[in-house]
Protein backbone atom coordinates (compact mmCIF):
# COMPACT_ATOMS: atom_id res chain seq x y z
CA UNK A 1 0.00 0.00 0.00
CA UNK A 2 1.31 3.45 -0.88
CA UNK A 3 2.34 5.62 2.07
CA UNK A 4 1.01 9.17 2.26
CA UNK A 5 4.51 10.56 1.56
CA UNK A 6 4.52 8.72 -1.80
CA UNK A 7 2.08 11.41 -2.97
CA UNK A 8 4.45 14.31 -2.21
CA UNK A 9 5.37 14.90 -5.86
CA UNK A 10 1.78 14.58 -7.06
CA UNK A 11 0.37 16.87 -4.35
CA UNK A 12 2.98 19.56 -5.13
CA UNK A 13 1.98 19.44 -8.81
CA UNK A 14 -1.68 19.65 -7.85
CA UNK A 15 -0.95 22.73 -5.71
CA UNK A 16 0.34 24.52 -8.83
CA UNK A 17 -2.60 23.28 -10.93
CA UNK A 18 -5.02 24.55 -8.28
CA UNK A 19 -3.90 28.08 -9.10
CA UNK A 20 -5.48 27.61 -12.54
CA UNK A 21 -8.87 26.51 -11.17
CA UNK A 22 -11.79 28.87 -11.59
CA UNK A 23 -12.52 31.00 -8.54
CA UNK A 24 -15.85 32.45 -7.40
CA UNK A 25 -14.72 35.75 -8.97
CA UNK A 26 -14.25 33.97 -12.33
CA UNK A 27 -17.74 32.52 -12.06
CA UNK A 28 -19.09 36.02 -11.31
CA UNK A 29 -17.31 37.41 -14.36
CA UNK A 30 -18.70 34.66 -16.60
CA UNK A 31 -22.24 35.21 -15.32
CA UNK A 32 -21.86 38.92 -16.06
CA UNK A 33 -20.59 38.19 -19.59
CA UNK A 34 -22.72 39.43 -22.48
CA UNK A 35 -23.49 36.10 -24.14
CA UNK A 36 -22.37 32.51 -24.65
CA UNK A 37 -19.50 33.57 -26.96
CA UNK A 38 -18.15 35.96 -24.34
CA UNK A 39 -18.18 33.15 -21.76
CA UNK A 40 -16.34 30.85 -24.19
CA UNK A 41 -13.77 33.58 -24.86
CA UNK A 42 -13.27 34.00 -21.11
CA UNK A 43 -12.77 30.27 -20.68
CA UNK A 44 -10.34 30.07 -23.62
CA UNK A 45 -8.35 32.97 -22.10
CA UNK A 46 -8.12 30.85 -18.96
CA UNK A 47 -6.56 28.06 -21.02
CA UNK A 48 -9.67 25.96 -21.59
CA UNK A 49 -9.97 23.96 -24.82
CA UNK A 50 -7.04 22.91 -26.97
CA UNK A 51 -4.78 24.25 -29.71
CA UNK A 52 -7.42 23.57 -32.39
CA UNK A 53 -9.34 26.60 -31.05
CA UNK A 54 -12.70 24.84 -31.20
CA UNK A 55 -15.66 27.04 -30.42
CA UNK A 56 -18.06 24.23 -29.58
CA UNK A 57 -18.94 24.55 -25.89
CA UNK A 58 -19.53 20.83 -25.29
CA UNK A 59 -16.29 19.98 -27.07
CA UNK A 60 -14.35 22.40 -24.84
CA UNK A 61 -15.90 20.94 -21.69
CA UNK A 62 -15.09 17.42 -22.89
CA UNK A 63 -11.47 18.44 -23.55
CA UNK A 64 -11.23 19.87 -20.03
CA UNK A 65 -12.60 16.66 -18.50
CA UNK A 66 -10.08 14.63 -20.49
CA UNK A 67 -7.26 16.96 -19.37
CA UNK A 68 -8.09 16.17 -15.72
CA UNK A 69 -7.86 12.42 -16.24
CA UNK A 70 -4.72 12.80 -18.37
CA UNK A 71 -3.09 14.62 -15.44
CA UNK A 72 -4.07 11.81 -13.08
CA UNK A 73 -2.70 9.20 -15.49
CA UNK A 74 0.53 11.20 -15.77
CA UNK A 75 0.83 11.28 -11.99
CA UNK A 76 0.46 7.48 -12.04
CA UNK A 77 -2.20 7.52 -9.39
CA UNK A 78 -3.78 4.10 -8.87
CA UNK A 79 -7.07 4.39 -10.77
CA UNK A 80 -8.89 2.39 -8.08
CA UNK A 81 -8.63 5.52 -5.90
CA UNK A 82 -11.16 7.18 -8.20
CA UNK A 83 -13.53 4.18 -8.46
CA UNK A 84 -15.90 5.69 -5.94
CA UNK A 85 -16.29 8.80 -8.12
CA UNK A 86 -17.26 6.65 -11.12
CA UNK A 87 -19.93 4.65 -9.24
CA UNK A 88 -22.86 7.03 -9.93
CA UNK A 89 -22.05 6.96 -13.68
CA UNK A 90 -21.73 3.18 -13.82
CA UNK A 91 -24.98 2.62 -11.96
CA UNK A 92 -26.67 5.17 -14.20
CA UNK A 93 -25.42 3.23 -17.25
CA UNK A 94 -26.87 0.07 -15.71
CA UNK A 95 -30.32 1.70 -15.46
CA UNK A 96 -30.07 2.99 -19.03
CA UNK A 97 -28.98 -0.42 -20.35
CA UNK A 98 -31.82 -2.27 -18.59
CA UNK A 99 -34.33 0.19 -20.06
CA UNK A 100 -32.80 -0.05 -23.53
CA UNK A 101 -32.89 -3.86 -23.48
CA UNK A 102 -36.44 -4.03 -22.08
CA UNK A 103 -37.95 -1.36 -24.29
CA UNK A 104 -35.81 -1.83 -27.43
CA UNK A 105 -35.57 1.97 -27.53
CA UNK A 106 -31.98 3.01 -28.09
CA UNK A 107 -30.63 6.38 -26.97
CA UNK A 108 -26.87 6.67 -26.91
CA UNK A 109 -27.04 10.05 -25.20
CA UNK A 110 -28.62 8.43 -22.16
CA UNK A 111 -25.26 6.82 -21.31
CA UNK A 112 -22.11 8.21 -19.74
CA UNK A 113 -18.89 7.40 -21.53
CA UNK A 114 -16.88 4.82 -19.59
CA UNK A 115 -14.02 2.59 -20.70
CA UNK A 116 -15.22 -0.49 -18.81
CA UNK A 117 -18.97 0.01 -18.45
CA UNK A 118 -19.98 2.29 -21.31
CA UNK A 119 -23.09 1.80 -23.44
CA UNK A 120 -21.84 -1.09 -25.60
CA UNK A 121 -20.42 -3.12 -22.73
CA UNK A 122 -23.37 -2.55 -20.42
CA UNK A 123 -26.04 -3.36 -23.04
CA UNK A 124 -24.18 -6.57 -23.96
CA UNK A 125 -23.96 -7.60 -20.30
CA UNK A 126 -27.68 -7.09 -19.78
CA UNK A 127 -28.67 -8.72 -23.09
CA UNK A 128 -26.51 -11.79 -22.41
CA UNK A 129 -27.34 -11.73 -18.69
CA UNK A 130 -23.60 -11.92 -18.16
CA UNK A 131 -23.79 -10.39 -14.67
CA UNK A 132 -20.43 -11.86 -13.69
CA UNK A 133 -18.84 -9.18 -15.91
CA UNK A 134 -20.09 -6.53 -13.50
CA UNK A 135 -18.42 -5.52 -10.22
CA UNK A 136 -19.49 -7.92 -7.46
CA UNK A 137 -21.65 -5.37 -5.64
CA UNK A 138 -23.64 -4.70 -8.84
CA UNK A 139 -24.45 -8.25 -9.90
CA UNK A 140 -27.41 -8.95 -7.64
CA UNK A 141 -29.10 -5.60 -8.16
CA UNK A 142 -28.59 -5.79 -11.95
CA UNK A 143 -30.37 -9.13 -12.07
CA UNK A 144 -33.11 -7.99 -9.69
CA UNK A 145 -33.70 -4.72 -11.57
CA UNK A 146 -33.81 -6.51 -14.94
CA UNK A 147 -36.36 -9.04 -13.65
CA UNK A 148 -38.41 -6.24 -12.09
CA UNK A 149 -38.40 -4.28 -15.34
CA UNK A 150 -39.31 -7.34 -17.43
CA UNK A 151 -42.16 -8.39 -15.17
CA UNK A 152 -43.63 -5.06 -14.07
CA UNK A 153 -42.45 -2.61 -16.78
CA UNK A 154 -42.11 -0.19 -13.85
CA UNK A 155 -39.15 2.00 -14.75
CA UNK A 156 -39.36 3.94 -11.49
CA UNK A 157 -39.13 0.79 -9.38
CA UNK A 158 -36.12 -0.29 -11.44
CA UNK A 159 -34.54 3.14 -10.82
CA UNK A 160 -35.14 2.92 -7.06
CA UNK A 161 -33.46 -0.48 -6.84
CA UNK A 162 -30.39 0.61 -8.80
CA UNK A 163 -30.08 4.05 -7.16
CA UNK A 164 -30.31 2.52 -3.69
CA UNK A 165 -27.64 -0.05 -4.61
CA UNK A 166 -25.48 2.80 -5.87
CA UNK A 167 -25.79 4.67 -2.56
CA UNK A 168 -25.01 1.49 -0.61
CA UNK A 169 -21.94 0.89 -2.81
CA UNK A 170 -20.68 4.46 -2.27
CA UNK A 171 -21.25 4.24 1.49
CA UNK A 172 -19.40 0.90 1.58
CA UNK A 173 -16.54 2.27 -0.54
CA UNK A 174 -16.23 5.23 1.85
CA UNK A 175 -16.13 3.01 4.92
CA UNK A 176 -13.59 0.68 3.31
CA UNK A 177 -11.27 3.49 2.21
CA UNK A 178 -8.28 4.65 4.23
CA UNK A 179 -8.40 8.06 2.54
CA UNK A 180 -10.18 10.73 4.59
CA UNK A 181 -11.32 12.51 1.44
CA UNK A 182 -13.07 9.41 0.08
CA UNK A 183 -14.81 8.89 3.42
CA UNK A 184 -15.89 12.55 3.52
CA UNK A 185 -17.06 12.44 -0.11
CA UNK A 186 -19.02 9.20 0.39
CA UNK A 187 -20.68 10.40 3.59
CA UNK A 188 -21.60 13.73 2.06
CA UNK A 189 -22.81 12.17 -1.22
CA UNK A 190 -25.10 9.64 0.50
CA UNK A 191 -26.46 12.19 3.00
CA UNK A 192 -27.18 14.80 0.31
CA UNK A 193 -28.74 12.24 -2.05
CA UNK A 194 -30.96 10.94 0.77
CA UNK A 195 -32.16 14.50 1.39
CA UNK A 196 -32.84 14.94 -2.36
CA UNK A 197 -34.87 11.71 -2.44
CA UNK A 198 -36.79 12.71 0.70
CA UNK A 199 -37.62 16.14 -0.76
CA UNK A 200 -38.91 14.67 -4.02
CA UNK A 201 -40.87 11.99 -2.14
CA UNK A 202 -42.46 14.62 0.13
CA UNK A 203 -43.48 16.71 -2.88
CA UNK A 204 -44.96 13.77 -4.79
CA UNK A 205 -46.55 12.07 -1.76
CA UNK A 206 -44.64 8.78 -1.95
CA UNK A 207 -45.47 5.91 0.37
CA UNK A 208 -43.39 4.86 3.40
CA UNK A 209 -42.60 1.65 1.51
CA UNK A 210 -41.05 3.69 -1.33
CA UNK A 211 -39.00 5.75 1.10
CA UNK A 212 -37.76 2.66 2.92
CA UNK A 213 -36.57 1.18 -0.37
CA UNK A 214 -35.03 4.37 -1.69
CA UNK A 215 -33.21 5.83 1.34
CA UNK A 216 -29.81 4.37 2.16
CA UNK A 217 -28.59 4.20 5.78
CA UNK A 218 -25.92 6.80 6.46
CA UNK A 219 -23.93 8.25 9.34
CA UNK A 220 -25.25 11.79 9.01
CA UNK A 221 -28.76 11.09 10.28
CA UNK A 222 -31.33 8.40 11.04
CA UNK A 223 -32.96 7.62 7.68
CA UNK A 224 -35.98 6.11 9.45
CA UNK A 225 -36.76 9.52 10.94
CA UNK A 226 -36.01 11.20 7.60
CA UNK A 227 -38.50 8.85 5.90
CA UNK A 228 -41.15 9.57 8.55
CA UNK A 229 -40.65 13.31 8.13
CA UNK A 230 -40.79 13.06 4.31
CA UNK A 231 -44.00 11.01 4.52
CA UNK A 232 -45.54 13.58 6.89
CA UNK A 233 -44.98 16.34 4.33
CA UNK A 234 -42.61 19.11 3.30
CA UNK A 235 -43.01 21.15 6.52
CA UNK A 236 -42.18 18.17 8.69
CA UNK A 237 -39.20 17.41 6.49
CA UNK A 238 -37.88 20.97 6.80
CA UNK A 239 -38.30 20.80 10.57
CA UNK A 240 -36.35 17.54 10.65
CA UNK A 241 -33.58 19.01 8.48
CA UNK A 242 -33.33 22.02 10.79
CA UNK A 243 -33.07 19.74 13.82
CA UNK A 244 -30.45 17.46 12.29
CA UNK A 245 -27.97 20.20 11.36
CA UNK A 246 -29.10 20.69 7.78
CA UNK A 247 -30.78 24.08 8.24
CA UNK A 248 -29.00 25.42 5.13
CA UNK A 249 -30.69 22.68 3.08
CA UNK A 250 -34.06 23.69 4.53
CA UNK A 251 -33.39 27.36 3.73
CA UNK A 252 -32.40 26.48 0.15
CA UNK A 253 -35.55 24.38 -0.19
CA UNK A 254 -37.66 27.33 0.85
CA UNK A 255 -35.96 29.52 -1.78
CA UNK A 256 -36.34 27.39 -4.92
CA UNK A 257 -35.60 23.95 -6.38
CA UNK A 258 -32.50 25.30 -8.15
CA UNK A 259 -31.20 26.84 -4.91
CA UNK A 260 -31.64 23.44 -3.28
CA UNK A 261 -29.73 21.69 -6.12
CA UNK A 262 -27.00 24.30 -5.70
CA UNK A 263 -26.83 23.61 -1.96
CA UNK A 264 -26.51 19.85 -2.66
CA UNK A 265 -23.42 20.38 -4.85
CA UNK A 266 -21.95 23.05 -2.56
CA UNK A 267 -22.27 20.71 0.43
CA UNK A 268 -20.02 18.22 -1.34
CA UNK A 269 -17.45 20.84 -2.29
CA UNK A 270 -17.36 22.04 1.34
CA UNK A 271 -16.80 18.45 2.49
CA UNK A 272 -13.59 18.25 0.43
CA UNK A 273 -12.28 21.79 1.05
CA UNK A 274 -10.02 20.75 3.99
CA UNK A 275 -7.94 18.89 1.39
CA UNK A 276 -6.49 22.26 0.33
CA UNK A 277 -4.33 22.06 3.46
CA UNK A 278 -3.29 18.40 3.21
CA UNK A 279 0.41 18.01 2.44
CA UNK A 280 0.94 14.45 1.40
CA UNK A 281 -2.05 12.15 1.00
CA UNK A 282 -4.17 11.10 -1.95
CA UNK A 283 -6.83 13.54 -0.68
CA UNK A 284 -5.75 16.65 -2.62
CA UNK A 285 -5.72 14.62 -5.84
CA UNK A 286 -9.26 13.32 -5.37
CA UNK A 287 -10.37 16.80 -4.30
CA UNK A 288 -8.78 18.28 -7.44
CA UNK A 289 -10.71 15.87 -9.67
CA UNK A 290 -13.96 16.74 -7.86
CA UNK A 291 -13.14 20.46 -8.08
CA UNK A 292 -12.53 20.16 -11.82
CA UNK A 293 -15.81 18.29 -12.29
CA UNK A 294 -17.54 20.99 -10.27
CA UNK A 295 -16.13 23.84 -12.36
CA UNK A 296 -16.93 22.03 -15.62
CA UNK A 297 -20.50 21.57 -14.39
CA UNK A 298 -20.69 25.25 -13.43
CA UNK A 299 -19.30 26.33 -16.81
CA UNK A 300 -21.94 24.14 -18.49
CA UNK A 301 -24.71 25.76 -16.40
CA UNK A 302 -23.52 29.26 -17.32
CA UNK A 303 -23.10 28.41 -21.01
CA UNK A 304 -26.52 26.82 -21.31
CA UNK A 305 -28.05 29.68 -19.30
CA UNK A 306 -26.52 32.21 -21.70
CA UNK A 307 -27.54 30.13 -24.73
CA UNK A 308 -31.13 30.11 -23.46
CA UNK A 309 -31.09 33.84 -22.61
CA UNK A 310 -31.68 33.32 -18.88
CA UNK A 311 -31.23 36.41 -16.72
CA UNK A 312 -27.95 36.87 -14.84
CA UNK A 313 -29.77 36.41 -11.53
CA UNK A 314 -31.33 33.15 -12.68
CA UNK A 315 -27.92 31.84 -13.78
CA UNK A 316 -26.24 33.09 -10.60
CA UNK A 317 -28.76 31.15 -8.51
CA UNK A 318 -27.65 27.96 -10.26
CA UNK A 319 -23.87 28.41 -10.18
CA UNK A 320 -21.87 26.30 -7.74
CA UNK A 321 -19.38 27.35 -5.07
CA UNK A 322 -15.80 26.88 -6.30
CA UNK A 323 -13.11 24.84 -4.51
CA UNK A 324 -10.44 27.57 -4.45
Amino acid sequence: MASDWDFTYAVARIRVLETHLLSDADVGAMVAAKDEDAVLTYLRDKGWGDASGTKDAEEILKIEDEKTWATMRELRVDSSVFDVLALPKIYHNLKAAIKEVCTSYSNERAFYADDRYGRDQMVRIIQDRDFSALPEAMRQVAEEALETMLHTRDGQLCDILVDRACLDAIEAAGQKSNAKVIRAYAESFVAVTNIKIAVRAARTGKSPDFLQKALAPCKAFDVRLLAQAAFAGEDALMEYLNQSGYSEAAEALEQSPSAFERWCDNAQIRAIKPQKYEVCSVGPLVAYVLARQNEIKTARIILSGKANSLSDDAIRERTREMYV
Partner: peptide
Protein backbone atom coordinates in the same frame (compact mmCIF):
# COMPACT_ATOMS: atom_id res chain seq x y z
CA UNK B 1 14.51 13.53 -0.58
CA UNK B 2 10.99 14.35 0.65
CA UNK B 3 11.38 18.07 -0.07
CA UNK B 4 12.96 17.23 -3.43
CA UNK B 5 9.91 15.27 -4.53
CA UNK B 6 7.68 18.23 -3.69
CA UNK B 7 10.09 20.64 -5.42
CA UNK B 8 10.11 18.46 -8.55
CA UNK B 9 6.30 18.48 -8.57
CA UNK B 10 6.19 22.27 -8.51
CA UNK B 11 8.93 22.71 -11.13
CA UNK B 12 7.12 20.25 -13.46
CA UNK B 13 4.24 22.69 -13.67
CA UNK B 14 6.09 25.97 -13.11
Amino acid sequence: GIAGRAAAGVVTED
